[in-house]
């Protein structure tokens, strides 16, 4: 156990953890939104993310960029990032809508038991990920170096890079926007109404199916942004990239309080940082052990997670 190392590297580990945690957080929002409204876990969310990642890569590929390309001029990079984000958001949003339409809506119409939703979600997840595996020959795809990491802040052994700043800021902006949307707009009010009581909401004239589609779309949107941040940070994509990330993001959602937007943010950032601290103190092989011990510990005392408040009850 290396607590001295932790103290020494507290700065760099925290920043790297926050950047990774920001990706978990945006990813976790998808789980939390769907759970808040439907009370079910959308296990296909990891593939919603995956489609976003490949969409961004394919768009950049159109400009014949790959992992060995030179970094283009700043203006071009901004344009490419925007294009990548748009492509990822569209692909992820569309995937989420299709999954809802194919795997959930028919079951909902027939009042299927919750277990049926669980298995169709896992099925949809496997179908998309395995099909991607076949199409990509299960090999890794490299990402063009759009952002060359460069230090923007240097303080002792703490180096904060441009990419880390971009990821954390972008995640906070997306999160803030979503929070405002849910809490202040008419559509957001609809979401909260359905989350609180679906039947009463329907009686008050809220179109439940439209709200559910909207929730999947919003989750997909966030996953699309997370996907672009992921490919920029990690630098490769593989057909099973969503799986591991999905488990951690789901854990983050539960840790923060599933169904709670701010909880997902807190849970994601916390997990990213805890993983890094645990890796420093106990070794990287123990990071997941520590994360889940933490999760169990928190749930023992706070069964609904850290901010354990449901989407419906959330007040601005």
């Amino acid at each position: 156990m290396n607590f001295v190392g932790l103290l020494h590297s507290l700065g760099p580990l925290s920043i790297a953890g926050l950047a990774q945690g920001a990706i978990y957080a945006l990813f976790a929002l998808g789980y939390t939104l769907v759970y808040g409204v439907l009370r079910l876990i959308n296990f296909a969310h990891s593939e919603v993310f995956l489609m976003g990642a490949y969409a961004a890569l394919n768009v950049w590929g159109l400009f014949s960029l790959n992992q060995n390309s030179a970094t283009p001029a700043t203006v071009v990079v901004i344009g490419l990032l925007m294009l990548g984000l748009v492509a990822a958001i569209i692909a992820s949003g569309a995937t989420a809508l299709v999954v809802e339409l194919v795997a959930y809506r028919p079951l909902r119409r027939r009042n299927a038991p919750p277990l049926a939703f669980l298995i169709t979600a896992i099925g949809a997840s496997l179908v998309i990920s395995e099909a991607t595996g076949v199409f990509t020959h299960r090999s890794i795809t490299g990402v063009p170096p759009l952002i060359r990491p460069a230090d923007v802040v240097t303080f002792g052994n703490l180096h904060i890079t441009n990419l880390q700043v971009l990821i954390i800021v972008l995640a906070l902006v997306m999160m803030f926007g979503l929070d405002r949307f849910i809490n202040t707009t008419r559509l957001g009010r609809g979401i909260r109404a359905v989350a609180q009581n679906p039947d009463s909401a329907a009686l008050m004239g809220v179109n439940k199916n439209r709200v559910i589609s909207l929730v999947f779309l919003l989750g997909g949107l966030m996953a699309g942004v997370a996907a672009v941040m992921y490919v920029l940070k990690i630098g490769t994509v593989k057909f099973d990239a969503g799986f591991d990330l999905g488990i951690v993001a789901f854990t983050a959602a539960v840790l923060g309080g599933i169904g709670n937007l701010r909880g997902a943010l807190l849970g994601g950032l916390l997990l990213g940082v805890v993983e890094n601290y645990a890796a420093e103190v106990f070794g990287t092989e123990y990071r997941r052990v520590i994360v889940f011990v933490l999760l169990i510990g928190v749930l023992m005392f706070l069964p609904t997670g850290l901010l354990g408040e449901s989407l419906g009850k959330a007040r601005a």
Partner: peptide, 23 residues
């Protein structure tokens, strides 16, 4: 210094290991 990672293809974020190597 030493560290252990997950099996090949099972880990993508190596920031803790990277930090250990740099430090």
């Amino acid at each position: 210094g030493t560290d252990k990672t997950d099996a090949d293809g099972k880990q993508t974020d190596f920031s803790a290991t990277v930090n250990k190597i740099v430090q």
